[in-house]
Design a binder for these strands. Sequence first.
RNA 1: GCGGGUAUGGCGGAAUUGGCAGACGCGCCAGACUUAGGAUCUGGUGUCUUCGACGUGCAGGUUCAAGUCCUGUUACCCGCACCA
Length: 801
Amino acid sequence: MEKYDYLSIEKKWQKYWEEHNTFKAETGSSKPKFYALVEFPYPSGHGMHVGHIKAYSGLEVVSRKRRLEGYNVLFPIGFDAYGLPTENTAVKTGVHPRIVTDNNIAKFTDQLKRVGFSFDWSRVIDTTDENYYKWTQWIFLKMFENGLVFRDKTLVNYCPSCKVVLSNEDSQGGKCDICHSDIVQKTKEVWYLRITEYAEKLLQGLDKVNYLPNIRLQQENWIGKSTGAFVNFTVKENGEKLRIYTTRPDTLYGVTFMVIAPEHPIIEKYRANIANIDALDAYKAECAKKSEFERTQLVKDKTGVKIDGLTAINPVTEKEVPIYISDYVMMGYGTGAIMAVPAHDSRDYDFAKKFGIGIIEVIKGGDISKEAYTGDGEMVNSGVLNGISNKKEAIEKMLEVLAEKGCGEKGIQYKMKDWAFNRQRYWGEPIPIVHCPTCGIVAVPYEELPLKLPPVKDFQPGTDGESPLAKIDEFVHCKCPKCGGEARRETDTMPQWAGSSWYFLRYCDPSNDKEFASQEALKYWMPVDWYNGGMEHVTRHMIYSRFWHRFLFDKGEVPCDEPYAKRTAQGLVLGPDGEKMSKSKGNVVDPNDVVEQYGADVLRVYVLFMGDYEQAAPWSETSMKGCKRFLDRIWALQDMLIDGEEYRPEMTSSMHKTIKKVTEDIEAMKFNTAVAAMMTLLNELYSAGSVNKAELRSLLIILNPFAPHITEEMYSKLYGGILSEQQWVKYDEKLCTDSVIEVAVQVNGKIKAKINVPAEAEQDEVLSLAKADRAVASAIDGKNIVKEIYVKGRLVNIVVK
RNA sequence: GCGGGUAUGGCGGAAUUGGCAGACGCGCCAGACUUAGGAUCUGGUGUCUUCGACGUGCAGGUUCAAGUCCUGUUACCCGCACCA
C-alpha cells in the first residue's frame, strides 16, 4: 500500500465537495433542519490561528454527523469585517480599508478551505458589503422609528488613544477593548440604543434557552437586576425633592447623611445658595480627571465635600442630615443620590469614619464600632420596625410606611446601561441620520439605503474626536428629507458590534435584496439550534444580538423571540509555553503550517483531542504527532482488511460500544474521549491483526466528522461511493456488553482479586464465585461476614470482622 | 470586595456521577526489523522500604466504599467591580 499523501488527497476531496455542493443547505427541504452557528471571524491581517480552528471544529463535527443522520444542515460562515484594527492598518500603510479587508477575507477563506470545514460557501456574508449593511442601517432606522435610538450629552467612556467613545461593554475594567489604554470619562453628545428597555426581557428570555450555566450567570450579572425602593428626601432650604434609590429601605432610620454624585443637577440648580460652590467645582474637576483605574484603586480611601447650604430631611424620621458630594456615587446608576447608612453599608461606613459623621445602629448583630454590619438581625432604633428580625418583613413594613406618607415606592434597577452606539471612525456603517436646522434629527428614508460609505483618502480621525467623514463635504452636505432644506449628515459610524447583531438572520437568506431575509427562510431556519463561541462575547455580542433580535420579534419581523436555542463555549488554545497566544509573545501557531506538515485531518483531530473542549489547553507539537500516528494507523488498516458483511463475534461488543460512545460524546462536546474511544478500537483491531469490511466501514463513518479527507478517500477506494452521502451507523444497546465481565472483589474495601463472571449472573452466584477465589478465601478465613455488597457488573465488597 | 471555576503520574488529560484511580495520547524504558532511525511493530511505565503499603492541593467528616458528598483551608484562573 502506498503512503498516505495527505496534501493531494485533501485537496482532491475539498474540490469534490465544493463542485458537488455536498454541504449546501436547502431552505424548505422536508428533512428535519439543523442550524449550527459559529462566531464569524474578524478578518485581521495576521490570518487565523489554531484557536479559530478549535472554535469551528466542534460544531463542524456535529454538523457532519447531523448530515449523516439525515438532517438538512445550515452551517454557514462569514466575516465581521468592520472595525478599528483594519482602519489602523489603513492609516499606517495608506492602503484603503476596503482593499485591506478584501485581502484579509481572501486569506481567511483560503485557510478555512484548507482545513476542509463543511461550511455552505454559497451563503458567505461580509458585514462591510453594501448589500449587507443596507439592512444593518434598515434595522437601525426601525429602532429609531420606535424610539429606541436617542442622543444624549453625558459622561462617556473615551479612549484618548483610539480617539473614540466606547460603550460600557467595550471598556470593561477601565481599559479600551482595542488598544488597552486607560479610559477617561468625558462629557460628549453621543447616540444611544435604549437596550435598558429590554433588560427585563433579556433576563426573562434566559429561562427559555439552553445556555451553559456560567454563560447564563454572566448575562444575569451583567444585566444586574436589583429590587429596592425609591425614596424622596426633601431639601430643607428650598423644598426640592431629592430622590434616592436603595435596596435597604429597612435601614431608613439609620441614615446620618446623604451623598450625591459630583455631576448631580441639583448643584447647578442651586449654585447661588451653596456657600462653598468653589470647593465643589474643584472637586468635580478633580473627579473628571481621574481615570477609571485610579478610581478603583481608591476604593478604601473615600473623598468628598460637604455641601454648605443644602440640608436634607429624612421623610420618615423628619430628622435633618447633611448632604455630601463624592465620586463613590455614580450619576449613571439609580438616581445619582443615596441615603447613607454607615452602620450597615461598608462604603458609607468608610466615608462616615473619614468625615466624622455619626453612626446609628438599626440592626443588631454586629459591632459597629469596628465595621459596618451587613447581615440580618433584630431591628432597633427604628420606630415601627423595632423588634422585626426578618429583613424581608422589615422591608415590606417600611414600604407600607413610605406609601402612607407618599414619599417613596418599590423600585427596580439594572446595572446594564444604554448602549453608546457611535464611533468617530471611518470603517463602519454610516449612521443614516440627517441633522436639519429646522426639522432637527431626521431619518434617512428607507429607499435611500444603503447610505454608502464614501471613498476617502485620509482616514485619520480628527484631533477633536471628529469622524474622518466630517471632512468630506459631498457627504456632509445634503438636503433634509423632510423639508428639502440644507442639512448636515451624521458623520459618525456604528460600532463594530452592529453588523454581528443580526448576521445569523442573514445567513437564512443571504442574497435577498428586498428584505433582510424572507419570512419563509426565517420560519424554516430560526432559531439557531446550537451556537458555539468564545466566553469573551457573552456580555457583549450575545447581549446585543439578543436585544436586536427581540426587538425584531416585537415588530413581527422574525418568528421567534430568542435567537439561540443553545449556546456553548470552547476553551482557548494556549501557546506551547502555556501562555495565551499572542503575536508579541511569538507563540502563535499558524494552521497553514500544520496543514502543510501534518495534514488538515491531523490538525482537526488534534484540536479536539488535546483536552476538554470547554477548557483551555496548551499546544504541543509532539502530542499532535500522536494524532498523526493514529491516522496513519487508520490508513494502514487497508493491509489488514478481510472479507465479512457483519462484525465478527469477538469484535461485536467493541464495535457497538465505540459507536455508542462516539455518538453520545459528540452531542456532549466530549470530543477528546470520542477520539480516545476510536483509538482504543483501533488498538484492538491491531491486536486482532485484522479488520473486516463491515468493521472498517463503521469505523470510517464515525471517524468521518473528525477526519473527513482520509475517511472519504478510504471509503471511495474500498467501498465505492461518497462517505458524506452515507448514513450514520447505529448501535444496539444490548450488544454493548460482553457476555463475560470482570468484577473486582474487595474485602473491607481493599481489592483482593478480579474474577470473570457471566454478565447476567445474580448476586448469589457472583458472591460464591468470589469466595472461591484463593486470595479472597484467605482474607475472609475465620472472620465473620458482616455485610456483602454486589454492584452489578462492577464489584463485590465483603465486609468482615 | 462580590460571583463563578479549577487543582488527578514526568506532561495533556480520563473516570459510567458514590463502586477497580490514572482510559486515550505524549514522553520515557526495553525488545524486534534495520547500514541507519527523529520511521514502523511488540512489550513495559503512579510512588515506595514491592508476597505489602501509600496515593487525586491541604486538614477533618459521612459511608461497606470518596477524585466524586459534607465542613474548614490554601493556591491559581476567569468575570464583575464604590451598582447604593
